[in-house]
Amino acid sequence: MTNYLRFILIFIWTPLIILGGLNFELLVRYRKTLLLTIFFTLLFGIPWDALSVGTKLWWYNLSPTLGNWYFLGLPIEEFILTMSFPILVGCLVFTFIKKDKS
């Protein structure tokens, strides 16, 4: 497993699985919201990321990424992170805002 994937697994997916498990019903019910959030995160996040890599603001280490799966200069792990992040934020909202109202 690559370092970047390990980072995502430990720091993004672990809280996501815990919060997602607690809010599974809401995740399914509000899947449209999650899909829309993922779509817009990709729409704005990927060009931002690509611009940052293109202007050498930040870079990704070639060795600890999943093979040579690159698109717009970004490793596949970056896409995984970009798609996981809005779900994690969605779970946070379900836990602290939505549940309060229901």
Binding site: N3, Y4, R6, F7, I10, F11, T55, K56, L57, W58, W59, Y60, N61, P64, E77
Partner: peptide, 15 residues
């Protein structure tokens, strides 16, 4: 930890 695990890095001239 992302920096420590060498997942990504920043250009010191741009931060």
């Amino acid at each position: 930890y992302g920096l420590k695990m060498s997942c990504w890095g920043y250009s010191e001239a741009k931060i």
